[in-house]
């Protein structure tokens, strides 16, 4: 079963994303900030990260840069999700290592379809 790490400081958003993914048969884990996410990413295998930008301690950019710098996990695709629709954030997200930038709230169909595409499972 594909394992997805959902990183967001808002429990509501985590629950929202996880519910959608679990419903579709994915396994999910959660982290509340970049530091916790990194700890998990380094010890558990994930197929995809879904990461928020603005979080305490370590934000989404910081997390992605760390992940992309770690030899064993640097290839894992990442979807960045944020409420900011500013194009500047999008460039920052790509630069940090995100593969896709989505604006909250992400519709369930969109989230699932993008996830399937990134994981090579279909549309």
């Amino acid at each position: 079963m594909k394992n997805i790490l959902v990183i967001d400081d808002a429990a509501t958003v985590r629950m929202y994303h996880c519910n959608i993914l679990i419903e579709a048969g994915y396994h999910t884990e959660e982290a509340i900030n970049g530091i916790e996410a990194l700890e998990k990413a380094l010890t558990t295998h994930f197929d995809l990260y879904i990461v928020d930008i603005n979080m305490p301690k370590m934000d989404g950019y910081g997390f992605l840069k760390e992940v992309r710098s770690q030899k064993d996990i640097n290839q894992v695709p990442a979807i960045m999700v944020s409420t900011e629709s500013a194009s500047n954030d999008q460039v920052l997200a790509y630069s940090a290592g995100a593969n896709l930038y989505l604006v909250k709230p992400v519709r369930p169909n969109d989230l699932l379809s993008y996830t399937r595409l990134l994981l090579g499972e279909g549309a």
Binding site: K65, R68, S69, P77, G97, N99, L117, E121
Partner: peptide, 27 residues
């Protein structure tokens, strides 16, 4: 994006490749 030689460039490239791979497989 410019190919700045930062620590995470390798990861970024690999992640892009894996993402594209996913799309290829999916389609």
């Amino acid at each position: 994006l410019p190919n700045t030689n930062n620590a995470w460039l390798v990861g970024r490239l690999k992640a892009v490749a894996l993402t594209l791979k996913g799309c290829c497989q999916a389609l």
